[in-house]
Design a protein around this nucleic acid. Structure first.
Length: 489
RNA sequence: GGCGGCAUAGCCAAGUGGCUAAGGCAGCGGUCUGCAAAACCGUUAUUCACCGGUUCAAAUCCGGUUGCCGCCUCCA
C-alpha cells in the first residue's frame, strides 16, 4: 500500500510504527463559523482514508482536533457580548451535525485546544530551555533560525523565505519569520496563567501538544488541507521535533482544494457554500460522489454542473442497485455457490467477483478513488445488462446477482456510498428536486394519471401532449409494464 | 518578488517509460418501446499545452516557452 508523502514529495510504501496499527492526526477546524464545502472535502477525504485503512485491517486511532481559542473566536465572542466557550460550542455542534449528515465516521478522539493548555505551557518551557524559543514582554516566540531543518516540509529554505518575505514587521520578534508560541493577553481577551504572565497559546502549539499527547512523540500519518503545509505544519514540526528530537509524523498527507471558477473556495474570498445549504438541495452521497470522483490531491472544481454530473453518476449506480433489488425480489438466494456456473452466469460472476480486488488495487495506490469509481462503473454496466429485463431467476443467476450486490455494497461502505435502499434514494431525489424547482407533486401525479387514462384509450396524441407538458416542468417519465415512474431531469 | 503544483477528447477525469491512452457526461448509429425514458450494443483523442533533448521505446524522464492555480497573512 502506497501513499504520497508531502515530506519527500513522492509515494512511499506504508510502514506503520506498530504492526497493524495506524495513528492518524488531522487538523480540524477553528470553531468560529459554519463549515463550507472545502471543509467537507477535507473531512470526506480523511474519512475515506480512515475507512479504507480499517477495511485493509488496520486498527486506526483517528484524532481530529478543534481549535476553540483563537483571534477569530475572540472577535466573534466580543461582538456578540458572550464568551469564547459559547461561540466554540455552537460551531463545534454545527460542525458535528454537518459531519453526521455527510456520513463522516466520528474520529476516535476529538480534543479541544483549551483542554491542553497545561501541556502547551510545558512544551514551551522545554523549547525555551533548549534555546529554541525566547520570551519578549509576556509573549513567547519560536526562533526559527535555531531549528535545523525548518522548511523541510514545505520545501523552502530560510534564505528563500527571507528573500521573498511578506511578513508583517513586528519589532518584538528577533526575526520576522519567528512565530508566537504564547501571546500575552490584551484587554477583553481570555487568559490562562503562565510563567510569562497571563496569556493564551498560539495556534501551532495546540496541534503539537494534542497530537503527541494522544498518539506519541512519533506517529504514523499527519494530515490536513494543503493550505496548512506552511506555516502550520512546518511550525508543528519545528515545535515537536525541536522538543523531542524525534520525527513528529512519518507521513504527511494533504488534500487539494475545492475551487470555484478556478479559485480556491475560502472564507476570505467569500466564494463558499456552506455544507448545510448544500445538503438542503443535494443528498449527502451526491456531495461525496463529487469529491470521490477526483483524486484527493487534485483540485476539485465545484459548480452546479459538477454537482449535476455527480448526481447523474450516483443515479447510475443506484439504477444498478435497483435492478439487483428487483431481480432478487421474491426469490431465495442459494446459500453456496451453485456448482453449475456456466456461460453468461460464469462470465458475469468473474466480473463482479473481481471487483473488490480491483478496488483494492486502485485504493492501495495512494487512495485512487477516481480509478475505483471507474471500476464501479464497469461493474454497473455489466450488472444492468445481466440483471436487466431479460433476467431469468435461475439459482445460478440469483447467486451471482447477489454476489454483485454484496461486492458493490462492500466497496460502497468504504467510500460512504450506496448506503440507502435504491427506492428510498430515488424518493429522496424526487423530493429534493421538486422542492428545489418549486414544483407541485399533486399536479404531477394528476397529469400522470390523465396520461395513463389516455394511454389506456390508445389516445397517443393526448398522452404525448401531457408528457410534453410534464417535460417542460423537467419531469421525465418512465413507463413500465405495470406502472409509470417519474423523476426530475 | 521567493517557493511549489497543474496543463490528457466538446465537458469532467484516470493513467507518470513499453499491451489497443480507464471510466463518466454530452453527441451519433442501433436494440427495446405505441412513441419515449431508462438500460444495453456500437461509435467518438494516430494523440496527451508548445518547442527541443535523453532512450530501442515518453502523455509519462530532462531543459526551455506559454497559460492557469496555490503557499509566502487567518484558512480544510
Amino acid at each position: 500500500m502506497r501513499l504520497y508523502n508531502t515530506l519527500v514529495n513522492k509515494k512511499q510504501e506504508l510502514k506503520t510504527i506498530r504492526e497493524g496499527k495506524v495513528g492518524l492526526y488531522i487538523c480540524g477546524i477553528t470553531a468560529y463559523d459554519s463549515c463550507h464545502v472545502g471543509h467537507a472535502r477535507s473531512a470526506v477525504v480523511f474519512d475515506i482514508i480512515t475507512r479504507y485503512l480499517r477495511y485493509r485491517g488496520y486498527d486506526v486511532t483517528y484524532v481530529k482536533n478543534f481549535t476553540d481559542v483563537d483571534d477569530k473566536i475572540i472577535g466573534k465572542a466580543n461582538a456578540e457580548g458572550t464568551d469564547i466557550a459559547t461561540i466554540a460550542e455552537r460551531y463545534i455542534k454545527e460542525h458535528n451535525d454537518d459531519m453526521g449528515a455527510l456520513g463522516v465516521v466520528p474520529p476516535t478522539v476529538t480534543p479541544r485546544a483549551t483542554e491542553y493548555i497545561g501541556g502547551m505551557i510545558k512544551l514551551i518551557e522545554t523549547l525555551i530551555a533548549k534555546g529554541l524559543a525566547y520570551v519578549m514582554d509576556g509573549d513567547v516566540y519560536y526562533a526559527v533560525s535555531k531549528f535545523y531543518g525548518y522548511g523541510k516540509l514545505s520545501g523552502r529554505s530560510l534564505d528563500d523565505m527571507i528573500a521573498g518575505a511578506r511578513v508583517d514587521v513586528n519589532e518584538r520578534k528577533n526575526n520576522p519569520l519567528d512565530f508566537a508560541l504564547w501571546k500575552a493577553s490584551k484587554e477583553g481577551e481570555p487568559w490562562w496563567e503562565s510563567p510569562w504572565g497571563k496569556g493564551r497559546p498560539g495556534w501551532h502549539i495546540e496541534c503539537s501538544v494534542m497530537s503527541q499527547h494522544l498518539l506519541g512523540d512519533t506517529f504514523d500519518i499527519h494530515g490536513g488541507g494543503e493550505d496548512l503545509i506552511f506555516p502550520h505544519h512546518e511550525n508543528e514540526i519545528a515545535q515537536s521535533e525541536g522538543a523531542s528530537g524525534k520525527p513528529l509524523a512519518n507521513y504527511w498527507m494533504h488534500n487539494g482544494f475545492v475551487r470555484i471558477n478556478k479559485e480556491k473556495m475560502s472564507k476570505s474570498l467569500g466564494n463558499f457554500f456552506t455544507i448545510k445549504d448544500m445538503l438542503a438541495s443535494y443528498q449527502p452521497e451526491v456531495l461525496r460522489f463529487f469529491m470521490i470522483q477526483t483524486h484527493y490531491r487534485s483540485p476539485a472544481d465545484f459548480s452546479g454542473d459538477s454537482l449535476a454530473e455527480a448526481r447523474q453518476g450516483l443515479e447510475r449506480c443506484y439504477t444498478a442497485l435497483k435492478a439487483i433489488k428487483d431481480a432478487l425480489a421474491g426469490h431465495v438466494v442459494p446459500a453456496g455457490i451453485p456448482d453449475q456456473l456456466t456461460g453468461q452466469d460464469e462470465a458475469f460472476y468473474k466480473i463482479v467477483a473481481e471487483l473488490p480486488q480491483k478496488f483494492q488495487e486502485a485504493m492501495d495506490d495512494d487512495f485512487n478513488s477516481a480509478k475505483a469509481i471507474g471500476h464501479i462503473f464497469d461493474a454497473v454496466r455489466h450488472i444492468n445488462a445481466f440483471a436487466g429485463k431479460s433476467f431469468a431467476a435461475t439459482p445460478a443467476a440469483l447467486f451471482v446477482v447477489d454476489v454483485a450486490r454484496r461486492n458493490l455494497l462492500e466497496i460502497g461502505n468504504v467510500l460512504g456510498l450506496f448506503l440507502m435502499d435504491p427506492d428510498d434514494y430515488f424518493d429522496r431525489d424526487r423530493t429534493l428536486e421538486v422542492a428545489k424547482r418549486g414544483l407541485d407533486t399533486t399536479l404531477i401525479l394528476q397529469l400522470i394519471g390523465e396520461r395513463n387514462a389516455a394511454r389506456a384509450a390508445k389516445d397517443w396524441q393526448k398522452a404525448d401532449e401531457i408528457r410534453k407538458a410534464l417535460a417542460e416542468m423537467k419531469v421525465v417519465l418512465k413507463d413500465t409494464p405495470t406502472d409509470t415512474l417519474w423523476q426530475i431531469e
